[in-house]
Amino acid sequence: MDVQPNLLSLIDSVERGDTSCANALFSALYAELRRLAARELARQGVPLSLSPTTLLHQAYIEIAPREGPSFPDRARFMGYAARVMRGLIIDHVRSRHAQKRGGQFEITSAPTDFEHTVDDRELTRISGALDELAEVEPPLAQIVDLRFFCGFTFAEIAAMKGISERTAQRQWEKARIYLHRKIRSDLEV
């Protein structure tokens, strides 16, 4: 079995300004979340889908006690985990779409809802734009991660970040404006 990553120490390093640990933290969290997701889904007798929100809650419940009392609180944890969740979701959607697009495709009953799902290419564009936004106005990017990718409600986000719900909503709208414009102008180039 692999050694459990010491997330606490990684977080501490990053917060002390050691940016080189950021990647390590990302990878560690990614692996952890992925493992948890797989475990949940593999359980027979459970509805076969798992929402990101549930996964994150589950993850925190498991990791925090394990790491010790100085492990960041839920809100801070989500701050890091949300970005990771973005990556996890995009990877998942990409692999799903790979199945759909590949080769011979025999259908017993044709699906009717393909048009409404977001595809991985669009998600990748969003992710790229988000990374840029994270440089320009980080709180906005984080709102998008929390809301769009992790599925938290405005109320939960507000509680996590210590802001009002209205502020959260406004930040969300701003973020949307930024991303939409960025993506549109990129596509036009």
């Binding site: 797989a38 889904l41 889908s49 996964l55 799902t117 969003i126 949307r176 991303l179």
Partner: peptide, 15 residues
């Protein structure tokens, strides 16, 4: 356009 209003959805297991 309902931009970003449709969440990507849940994780599904590979069965």
């Amino acid at each position: 356009d309902h931009f970003l209003e449709q969440l990507p959805g849940d994780f599904e297991s590979s069965l």
